[in-house]
Every structure is written in structure tokens, then in C-alpha cells.
């Protein structure tokens, strides 16, 4: 039993880590937190299930790719139209505006796709396999596989390609990057698009584990943010570790202490971290640059 609790906690944690990574990337390049990230996840899950799987009848993996492309375009557009303008504003304005946009996105999902919860069984249904005496659903294994592949690809791209170098340059010093001829606006839009894709992957992976409702992403988005704070604001390894710790801790505490309060655990953990270790587990060196 405990093994299953750990496995499902880690699977959930991997999803938090994806969302947290999105926050970290956007924070590093644009210095804004996108409080609508959870709603991006919801919207992606709806597009994926309702449009690409149910309406167009595409197979799981093809539908997933289409949903990611759609969310990337939405993210890039949002970044250019709204987010870029928010950069000049006070932090509080940016926070409220992204909360407002989140409400818009959530309501749009309801208006377009209706209020009924959608079910998608995914490629595996509820099949489980036995790994070392623990029965794990295939969907959970898929989550681990996808998240690991995303992390490795992301590391390789950031480290060894020109795109990665350009992104890191923009993150470190936008003005200089611009003076050196880097198309900064395109890079920012690209970063935001990537963060949206991370949310989208989260939504696609979550869809077969829960019913898809307009509330699907709200808490996941908030907990992803909590995960980033626990790991270290804006830190990339911190986001991954924070996500895994949060998912695991949440499941263990729900299992051993109190299941009804499962959703409160993340926020209690947040309070503890803010009071005891406000910079998180892996503090970002340049966190104070603002």
C-alpha cells in the first residue's frame, strides 16, 4: 500500500514539477509569475480530450502533439499581447492581471466545452503492472517517462544548442542581448510558449487520471507555484525537486494523517517554508537582482 502511495505521489509530483518549471522559465526571462498557468493546463486538457480525441478522433499521441502545438500558439500570442505589456507595470498589477486572465481562460473552457466533466481513459485505461511488488498504473509510468524525457531534452537544448544559449543570454541581461542582435521579443514569446507546452503536457497526462473539469488545473497550477517556492524561486533544479517533494509529501501526509485535508497540505508546507527557509531548498543566486 505504502509503495502505491509513493508511486502515485511521485507521479503527481512529476506533474507539479512540469508546471513549476513553466513558472521558473517565465520568471527567469520575464520576471513575472503567470497566475493563469493552472488555467492553461485546464484549457489544454479540454482541447486535447474534447477537440482532438473526441471530436476529431485522433489517436492519443497525435492528439497530444496537436494540443501542445495549439497551446504553444496560445501561449506565444498571450505573451506578445498581454504579458509583454505587463512587464512595465508594478508587480501587483501583473499578479492581478494574470489572475483575471486565468478566470477568462477557465470560463472560456466552460463556454466552449460545456460544464459536464469529460472522461478520457488514455492509451492504457486502468491497466496496472507490477514493479518490484508494487502495482503501478501504466499511466503513472507514462508520466514518469514523459517527464524524464522532457527534462533531459530541455537540459540538452539549454546546454548545447544556440536556442539554449540565446535563452540564457536573454534571461541574464535582456538589454545586452538586444544590443547583440538577439530578437528578444521572439525569445520571450518562445519561452512563454514553452512554459505553456509544459502546462499542456501536464494537462494531457492528468486527463486520464481525473475527470476533465474546469477546476482541473486550478489547484495543480497553485501547487506548481508552491513547488517552485519550496524548490527555490526561479531555480530550475529546484522546481523539479520541489515538485517531487510536494507530490510525495502530500500523498504521504494524506495517507498517514488526514485525507480530507490533502489539498491543505501544500499550503501548510508553503507557510512552513516561507517562515523557516524563505529562499527555498536551492536558492537561485540571482533571485535578488530585482
Amino acid at each position: 500500500m505504502l509503495g502505491q502511495v509513493v508511486a502515485s505521489g511521485l507521479a503527481m509530483g512529476a506533474i507539479y514539477a512540469l508546471v513549476a518549471l513553466g513558472y521558473a522559465f517565465v520568471w527567469r526571462t520575464m520576471n513575472i509569475v503567470n497566475f493563469a498557468a493552472g488555467e492553461f493546463l485546464t484549457f489544454a486538457a479540454f482541447i486535447f480530450v474534447a477537440t482532438f480525441v473526441n471530436r476529431l478522433g485522433l489517436p492519443f499521441y497525435l492528439a497530444a502533439i496537436f494540443a501542445c502545438v495549439a497551446m504553444a500558439s496560445l501561449g506565444a500570442a498571450f505573451s506578445r499581447i498581454v504579458f509583454a505589456r505587463l512587464q512595465k507595470e508594478r508587480t501587483i498589477v501583473a499578479i492581478i492581471a494574470t489572475v483575471g486572465f486565468g478566470l477568462f481562460l477557465k470560463e472560456m473552457a466552460r463556454i466552449i466545452y460545456g460544464p459536464q466533466p469529460l472522461l478520457n481513459t488514455g492509451p492504457f485505461g486502468f491497466e496496472t503492472i507490477n514493479v518490484g511488488g508494487i502495482s503501478v498504473t501504466k499511466q503513472q509510468l507514462l508520466v514518469f517517462a514523459v517527464v524524464i524525457v522532457v527534462m533531459v531534452l530541455q537540459y540538452l537544448v539549454l546546454r548545447y544548442t544556440m536556442i539554449g544559449k540565446v535563452m540564457r543570454a536573454v534571461a541574464q541581461d535582456r538589454e545586452t542581448a538586444q544590443l547583440m542582435g538577439i530578437p528578444v521579443n521572439a525569445v520571450l514569446a518562445g519561452t512563454f510558449a514553452y512554459a505553456s507546452v509544459l502546462s499542456a503536457i501536464g494537462g494531457i497526462l492528468l486527463a486520464p487520471m481525473f475527470f476533465v473539469t474546469t477546476e482541473l488545473g486550478t489547484l495543480v497550477g497553485l501547487k506548481g507555484f508552491v513547488a517552485m517556492i519550496i524548490g527555490g524561486f526561479g531555480s530550475i533544479p529546484g522546481a523539479i525537486i520541489g515538485g517531487l517533494i510536494l507530490g510525495l509529501g502530500e500523498n504521504l501526509a494524506a495517507f498517514s494523517i488526514s485525507a480530507p485535508y490533502k489539498d491543505a497540505i501544500a499550503f501548510v508546507l508553503l507557510l512552513v517554508f516561507l517562515l523557516v527557509r524563505p529562499k527555498g531548498l536551492i536558492p537561485e543566486a540571482s533571485a535578488d537582482r530585482a
Binding site: 499578479i95 497553485l222 499550503f267 516561507l274
Partner: peptide, 28 residues
């Protein structure tokens, strides 16, 4: 008192979290 140590994004997520905790307590 807590909010003097927590600012901006942290405060936003903390107050939101407290709202959620309040709901869970009332519900349970």
C-alpha cells in the same frame, strides 16, 4: 505580521492558500 515577511507573489499565493484551508476546515 506574517505578511511583513512575505511580499508580492508570496503573499498572493499565501492568502489564496489560506482561503483554501478555510474552505477545507469549514467543509470537514
Amino acid at each position: 505580521l506574517i505578511s511583513t515577511r512575505i511580499k508580492e507573489h508570496y503573499l498572493a499565493i499565501t492568502t489564496l492558500g489560506l482561503n483554501e484551508i478555510f474552505r477545507l476546515i469549514v467543509l470537514n
